[in-house]
Design a protein around this nucleic acid. Sequence first.
DNA 1: CCAGTTTGGTTTCGTGACGAAACCATATTA
DNA 2: TAATATGGTTTCGTCACGAAACCAAACTGG
Lengths: 151, 151
Amino acid sequence: MSRKRFDDSDCAVARALDEVGDWWSLRIVLQAMYGTRRFVDFQQQLGIARNILCNRLERLVACGVLCKVNVGEHGCRYEYRLTDKGRDLFTVLMALRQWGEKWTAAASDKPQAVVLDKASGRPIGPLQVVDADGQPLSVRDVVLAWRQPSQ
Amino acid sequence: MSRKRFDDSDCAVARALDEVGDWWSLRIVLQAMYGTRRFVDFQQQLGIARNILCNRLERLVACGVLCKVNVGEHGCRYEYRLTDKGRDLFTVLMALRQWGEKWTAAASDKPQAVVLDKASGRPIGPLQVVDADGQPLSVRDVVLAWRQPSQ
DNA sequence: CCAGTTTGGTTTCGTGACGAAACCATATTA
DNA sequence: TAATATGGTTTCGTCACGAAACCAAACTGG
């Protein structure tokens, strides 16, 4: 039996996970945000098996997170670039990064990757869920409702 | 060969994905945020196989995202509740939800789940990556640096 | 312009994870 | 006390994953 799919779920989180919810996809997108574009570079930086990378890149292109651009001068040589949809995962990845920094232990002897605001050189601020007026909200301040499909 | 682990990675995103980066874990945490606490309720609401649910709950308890509480009156009956670490995934899940709402197509005939601010009844605001002063940042405004481990 | 290297894959093979369904012991309840 | 709910475990088949080998089409150095 194949993996359970969530693509028709009524929950947007489930649909999102259906597209990028595996072990590698988000890491590939993250690398792409750091500037990686070529197959071999992804492969070496992530340590991913080549066939799996191939499969993931195909899937990410198929669902519009990446696009595959031919940059060969006399034939085919490819780059994988983020689309707007892919770039929009920035928020998700930074939220995940902040959670990881706060709650998971790093190997204490290695330098840690941190994200800085290019203009000021300072770390970015903490992400927050906010209400319509910009006031912070916690889990307990929200409620799940059902919106009927607009006809 | 077992799945590649990222638990000692120098990247906080990789470490976070190592703990909650599979198809089910984040959905289980999301259900927990909506109030689900019992094994059978998780199983029915998610449609997950019982052995997989069992395995995932164990892992989430082991890494401190959930805790298992005995609520039986004459013996054992369990509830799985979010810890602070688990509740802190709220931001990640809301970011994922907003991305899913914006970029993945919902089945047009089903009512959609939406998150509302309990106090005002309005939808929550969009999540943004911000700098130290609260100004919005895009992918292009940030840079990756390496922080040496503090001795 | 030719040989060697880089790039971007595909194929094969072994192992492990996943999903379905059946089974089971203990709690709860009617 | 019988029936049912709960919280699992076991078994089994299929599929996904990872490693390594293989390969053809660019590209590059001389």
